[in-house]
């Protein structure tokens, strides 16, 4: 199959990941568009050894890092009350609330933990695929995932303690490189 067709087939996955990362449909689509433009500019010089999917996600993630640098704190200042509530989800009240809690918790994870968690939990990336896409060693990925999952658990109150979701996460405590 033509590499451009292969890339096109990845667009739905890229969109879902970009929208989840940015929590904004338009910003997510802009991110995907940038990613596709870069892929188009470089696909002929790409090393043929790595999988295309990991390469595309790596481009998207690099682009997202650039954008975060432009607005470094945007991802950490979302007040729980300000999160958009979409009406009419086909779910019972309890599970609806639980979903909203999870969404709010994900929104306040440090950026690199969210990228890692969404790759495996949303995109179903394997350990190696996620490490390749994020361009980090397996050990770093493992500790990022462990921290993301533990934080999510605490913020949704499912670790037996009370939820602390009203308090913002202090980004300076994230020890990632």
């Amino acid at each position: 199959m033509n590499v451009l067709n292969e890339i096109e087939a990845l667009i739905p996955d890229l969109r879902r990941y970009a929208c989840a990362l940015t929590r904004d449909r338009d910003a997510g689509d802009d991110l995907v568009q940038d990613c596709l433009e870069r892929a188009l500019a470089h696909h002929r010089s790409r090393r043929p050894d790595g999988p295309l999917r990991a390469w595309m996600f790596r481009i998207l993630i690099n682009r997202h890092r650039d954008l975060i640098r432009r607005a470094p704190r945007a991802g950490h200042l979302v007040a729980v009350d300000d999160l958009p509530v979409e009406p009419g989800r086909p779910a019972g009240q309890d599970s609806y609330m639980a979903l909203r809690e999870t969404e709010a918790a994900i929104a306040r994870l440090p950026e690199d933990q969210r990228r890692a968690l969404l790759l495996v939990a949303l995109q179903g990336a394997t350990f190696d695929e996620a490490a390749q896409a994020l361009d980090i060693p397996r050990g770093t990925l493992m500790s990022r995932l462990a921290r993301a999952r533990a934080t999510l658990r605490t913020m949704t109150g499912r670790d037996g303690t009370r939820p602390v979701s009203a308090r913002p996460i202090d980004k300076s405590k994230d020890p990632s490189p």
């Binding site: 996955d13 929208c19 568009q33 433009e37 979903l99 939990a121």
Partner: peptide, 30 residues
């Protein structure tokens, strides 16, 4: 709980996957 986190995350972002790809994104590749 981690399995439940995965189920929640899948449920939260399911719509974008089913939507048709916007034409302007397809156009980039062509």
């Amino acid at each position: 709980d981690w399995a439940r986190q995965n189920a929640d995350i899948q449920a939260l972002f399911i719509e974008t996957l089913d939507e048709p790809v916007p034409e302007h994104l397809r156009a980039v590749l062509h």
